[in-house]
Amino acid sequence: MPRMIFDAEHEQFRDSVRRYVQGEIAPRAEAWRKAGRVDRQAWRDLGAQGYLLMWAPEEYGGLGIDDFRYDQILYEENVRHGEVGFYMQLHSRLVAPYIGHFGSPEQKARFLPGCISGETILAVAMTEPGAGSDLAGMKMRAEDKGDHWLLNGSKTYISNGLIADVVLVAARTVPDSRYGIGLFLVEEGMPGFSRGQKLHKMGLDAQDTAELFFQDVKVPKANVLGDATKGFSYMMQGLAEERLTGSVLSLASAQTAFDLTMEYIQERSAFGTTIGSFQNSRFKMAELRSQLDSVQTFLDQCVLLHNRRELSGEVAAQIKLLTSELEGKVIDECLQLFGGAGYMEEYRICRMYRDARITRIFAGTSEIMKEIIGRKLGLDDRRR
């Protein structure tokens, strides 16, 4: 179904991005999956194209494009033709905006140019062994020592954890306050900051994920983002965009699985006819096509709302819930239509099945999304 939110400039940009992804990312993807990480040159190459932090002001080297649709196009094309484990969206749309929104002029001038060029790779460290979706339950602490903060604790499941040059770390700054949290820019080489081994995951083979450790890490006051007691509020402000970004990836993945399956069932034969001609195949694909188009329309409207700064937390939770759940359903149904071939690594649908499972967990589980939506409806038993 035609998507009405894009104009001619967007489509020209999509054509350009597709050529770049097909020519520069796709040929290197297998090597990244085997290595367990994306090489640093790929980040610099992406920066040279202007594809990192496209929203950043020109004074720092950015394009100054305040239109999420360009990021949407970039991520859709990378999912379809490139490598989903290349976490450009984490760098550009999840971590860097904290610096852009809450950083001082000095912090922006110091950090943003390298992030835009790809010389500085970003990660965010929120999740702890005992605190995932409940960010207010984090245990890592930061103590004010006058001219610096002292960080102690650990983080886990950190994407870009091995290759990041700067990690945005959330830590408790007010011991007796559930929401007294600060955000700190921890740089590679700071004494006491170390990384564990690469964590072995079910999927996303090219995406490096690690544990991070902080033992008496001295973080200068110049590396604190905004008010050191308001980090929780800052994180809540960024969650809508994080969930919207994840939704773009999920639906692009689901659409890609659908397209690959359409090709396969029209070529593969059984009992003297193509698999696609069976009634079961027609009905399955018809159902998935209808659901994909419906959710895509909702997602595109959420993008427009976000461009107008009107995307609420509960609507972001709705689209994250719908897209991640639909991604799981579509890829599962499509793998079934591949039959035994779908269980083989040589077929992309097999890898997509593994990659997709995390999307119902990260950026808030499906269960947490339902809680957010339900409470907005007034169905919160704590109010009784």
Results as ranks from 00 to 15, higher is better:
residue 370 K to G: 02
residue 313 G to F: 08
residue 328 G to A: 10
residue 378 G to V: 00
residue 99 I to F: 06
residue 292 L to V: 05
residue 91 H to E: 10
residue 50 G to Y: 13
residue 285 M to D: 02
residue 131 A to H: 06
residue 178 R to N: 09
residue 52 L to C: 07
residue 101 H to Y: 14
residue 285 M to F: 08
residue 21 V to E: 06
residue 34 K to A: 09
residue 119 E to I: 02
residue 300 D to W: 00
residue 97 P to Y: 05
residue 14 R to M: 08
residue 117 S to T: 13
residue 353 Y to N: 13
residue 173 T to G: 14
residue 167 V to E: 09
residue 357 R to K: 15
residue 334 C to S: 04
residue 78 N to P: 06
residue 193 F to C: 07
residue 143 E to P: 02
residue 57 P to A: 12
residue 378 G to P: 00
residue 289 R to N: 12
residue 140 M to G: 06
residue 45 D to T: 10
residue 7 D to G: 04
residue 252 A to L: 09
residue 361 I to E: 12
residue 67 D to V: 09
residue 315 V to T: 03
residue 59 E to C: 08
residue 36 G to H: 07
residue 205 D to Y: 05
residue 304 L to W: 00
residue 243 R to H: 09
residue 266 Q to W: 14
residue 222 A to H: 02
residue 132 G to Y: 14
residue 381 D to W: 11
residue 322 L to Q: 06
residue 151 L to R: 11
residue 165 D to L: 12
residue 314 E to T: 14
residue 331 I to R: 04
residue 285 M to C: 07
residue 73 I to R: 08
residue 372 I to Q: 00
residue 372 I to R: 11
residue 18 R to D: 15
residue 233 S to C: 03
residue 54 M to W: 01
residue 256 T to M: 04
residue 218 K to G: 00
residue 74 L to T: 14
residue 297 T to M: 13
residue 41 Q to L: 13
residue 308 R to M: 10
residue 292 L to T: 08
residue 355 D to I: 12
residue 280 N to F: 10
residue 340 G to W: 03
residue 305 L to K: 15
residue 194 S to L: 13
residue 356 A to M: 08
residue 1 M to R: 01
residue 43 W to M: 00
residue 196 G to P: 14
residue 51 Y to D: 11
residue 63 L to P: 02
residue 72 Q to F: 13
residue 310 E to D: 04
residue 223 N to K: 08
residue 345 E to R: 00
residue 137 G to H: 08
residue 240 A to L: 01
residue 84 V to D: 03
residue 4 M to A: 01
residue 95 V to F: 05
residue 227 D to M: 10
residue 309 R to S: 07
residue 108 K to S: 03
residue 288 L to I: 13
residue 49 Q to D: 12
residue 18 R to Y: 11
residue 270 A to Y: 06
residue 23 G to K: 11
residue 262 M to F: 01
residue 286 A to L: 11
residue 35 A to V: 06
residue 304 L to V: 13
residue 65 I to W: 15
residue 56 A to P: 01
residue 323 T to Q: 05
residue 193 F to G: 08
residue 3 R to F: 09
residue 118 G to M: 02
residue 297 T to I: 03
residue 80 R to Q: 08
residue 383 R to I: 12
residue 8 A to W: 10
residue 369 M to W: 08
residue 107 Q to W: 06
residue 255 Q to W: 08
residue 22 Q to I: 11
residue 118 G to P: 03
residue 358 I to C: 14
residue 302 C to M: 05
residue 73 I to T: 03
residue 168 L to N: 11
residue 56 A to M: 05
residue 35 A to N: 12
residue 238 G to Q: 13
residue 53 L to S: 03
residue 216 D to Y: 07
residue 370 K to L: 05
residue 27 P to D: 03
residue 109 A to T: 10
residue 4 M to V: 07
residue 10 H to F: 14
residue 1 M to L: 05
residue 59 E to L: 11
residue 241 E to I: 14
residue 291 Q to C: 04
residue 3 R to Y: 07
residue 218 K to L: 04
residue 60 Y to L: 07
residue 15 D to M: 10
residue 110 R to I: 02
residue 307 N to H: 14
residue 27 P to Q: 05
residue 116 I to C: 02
residue 343 Y to G: 04
residue 70 Y to T: 07
residue 207 Q to D: 04
